[in-house]
């Protein structure tokens, strides 16, 4: 139930993000979720796509610095306390969250949170036991 996430090094330079987006578009890569963190001189773009291995290969060919990592996508109730509940489970299991970002597939759905954690296996186990629904890539691709 892990999802492979794409990480791309982006220099803070005009047009870099646009050129990445057009490489993805040209190759039919669908972006499900996207997050960018940056400092004054570089950023890391993280994305979920319909084919992360292909995206990584193509971007490397285009000269981008790319890495893939596994993340967990958890469904949380879209109301106050929804995120807190999931974080409490991870906390109780001694699992650190390195970063997270959220996205919504359809306005009617509950929110999805992507977690990059210190121990993916343990997080998977703890969250499943606590009854949190985890989403796989197959489910993300259904629109």
């Amino acid at each position: 139930m892990f999802i492979k996430q794409l990480s791309v090094f982006l220099e803070n330079k005009k047009g870099r993000l646009a050129s990445l987006a057009s490489v993805m578009a040209r190759n039919g890569i669908d972006l499900y979720a996207l997050s960018i963190a940056d400092t004054t001189n570089f950023g890391i773009l993280r994305a979920l796509t319909n084919d992360t291995d292909k995206a990584a290969r193509i971007l490397r060919e285009e000269g981008f610095m790319v890495n893939t990592t596994e993340v967990i996508a958890a469904e949380v109730d879209d109301r106050p306390g929804g995120l807190a509940k999931v974080l409490d489970v991870l906390d109780a299991g001694g699992i650190g969250v390195e970063y997270l970002y959220s996205f919504v597939r359809n306005p009617s759905d509950s929110a999805l949170i992507l977690f990059r954690v210190s121990d993916t296996e343990a997080a998977f186990k703890a969250l499943t036991e606590a009854g949190v629904r985890l989403i796989g890539l197959d489910e993300l691709s259904k629109k």
Partner: peptide, 15 residues
């Protein structure tokens, strides 16, 4: 130019 792709896992490693 950084070359070690595994550093992308964590922002802190690049810093």
């Amino acid at each position: 130019e950084p070359t070690d792709e595994t550093m992308l896992v964590d922002y802190g490693r690049l810093i």
